[in-house]
Amino acid sequence: MPEKIDELLKEPLLVINIGLKGFSESLAEQGVDVIQVDWVPPAGGDKELMEILDKLI
């Protein structure tokens, strides 16, 4: 049985929110432990450069 999914349903949510800040705010309003990531396109959004970066990291 995939235990990660079971844990998700049993344990309190601990969220990394990547993108819209409103989603972080509504989760926090409900008492969820959430951290906001203000995402920006890596490598200036250059997809070829992103692929190279992915291979390097």
Partner: peptide
């Protein structure tokens, strides 16, 4: 220990 990523990009 995060168990969920919420992604809206």
């Amino acid at each position: 220990d995060a168990n969920l990523a919420v992604i809206s990009i």
